[in-house]
């Protein structure tokens, strides 16, 4: 496929937003059950929530550049019964709405403790909003991943690993941002978020490498023989029915050299996983803001490369009909 930058930015930006929210919520729920000291200030949640919201808005804006008719985008919520894309269109504003409420509640300090257990664990309204937000966030990850995983003849994508990778990579980038952000508003939680960032990043490394390995040995079900229905081992295309190319030759190919394509794989493995983990490790030791923010930026650039590779790697069976490109 030809990676569209609008979709690359959509998926990576909302990934950061969702991950950051999950990080905030993890912090809050750990403190609610007193596993963590309530070290985070109200700003950590409110400003953190606002930043997460901005990333989601950024992703939403990017998505409009993908559409031919953005003014009709509201129609896309119609077919949620069958279309994962439609479900995503519903899940995204839901997450944004819950996140807005969550951030506002913390900002205005509107919160009521509904219930306190004997051990001192507190259930507050903001925690319930957070739980709903977390569910919506995971639903959004599922929708985003399934948009790609549900197309069965895009065999590189048609695996649960697609959903898992979208979830883990988004969460990792959000946790890394939370770590950097904690240096301002919740220094006490720095180590907590830092260690989690590294754990999630390395887990994502395992699942992403798993999908790379899986895709290395894919056996394509379609061939020139099944495409035109001629049973002969040698079938060669001579003309595509056009001379100057068409959407079919532009949209379904990455148009880059094999060398570039291969090198992007190593670039993203380095930028998404290895370098950020090292930077975070070094950064949390000495609470070094520069190191932690560069970890986030490096990882985000890496994620752009990762997403590019994800799209470019998918080999659409329609390309069999357009071989003489």
């Amino acid at each position: 496929m030809n990676p569209a930058f609008s979709v690359i930015f959509l998926t990576t930006l909302i990934g950061v937003g969702q991950g950051l929210f999950l990080a905030l919520f993890t912090g809050q729920s750990y403190s609610a059950v007193k596993l963590l000291p309530a070290a985070a200030s109200a700003e950590f949640y409110s400003i953190g929530g606002l930043i997460a919201l901005l990333f989601l808005v950024g992703g939403l804006i990017a998505s409009f550049f993908h559409l031919g008719h953005p003014e009709r985008a509201w129609r896309a919520a119609a077919m949620w019964r069958t279309s994962w894309l439609s479900r995503e269109v519903i899940a995204l504003p839901t997450v944004m709405g819950l996140l807005f409420i969550y951030a506002l509640m913390h900002y205005m300090q509107w919160d009521i403790v509904l219930f306190t257990s004997e051990a001192g664990a507190e259930l507050s309204v903001s925690l319930i909003v957070g739980i709903l937000g977390m569910l919506a966030t995971f639903a959004l990850f599922l929708c985003t991943g399934m948009i790609y995983a549900c197309i069965k003849f895009l065999q590189e994508w048609h695996t649960p690993l697609t959903v898992i990778n979208y979830t883990l990579l988004g969460t990792a980038s959000g946790f890394v941002l939370a770590t950097a952000f904690a240096t301002y508003t919740a220094p006490g939680l720095l180590k907590f978020f830092g260690i989690w960032s590294i754990i999630i990043t390395l887990t994502a490394l395992i699942t992403r490498v798993a999908s790379l390995l899986r895709n290395r040995s894919i056996k394509y079900k379609s061939s020139a023989q099944t495409a035109i229905g001629v049973r002969h081992t040698k079938v060669k295309q001579i003309t595509m029915g056009m001379m100057g190319g068409s959407v079919n030759t532009r949209d379904f190919n990455h148009h880059m050299s094999a060398l570039f394509f291969k090198s992007i794989k190593w670039v993203f493995l380095l930028l998404v996983f290895i370098i950020p983990s090292i930077l975070i490790w070094a950064g949390i030791e000495e609470a070094n803001r520069t190191l932690l923010f560069s970890a986030f930026i490096v990882q985000y650039i890496g994620l752009i490369a990762e997403r590019w590779f994800f799209f470019a790697q998918a080999n659409h069976p329609q390309n069999i009909y357009y071989q003489t490109v």
């Binding site: 985008a73 003849f153 949209d251 069976p317």
Partner: peptide, 19 residues
């Protein structure tokens, strides 16, 4: 009604849809 998202063209294995 079409918003031009191209998703259906990804979902046709034959490349029969052209935006």
């Amino acid at each position: 009604k079409c918003i031009g998202c191209r998703y259906c063209s990804w979902a046709c294995p034959y490349g029969a849809r052209e935006i």
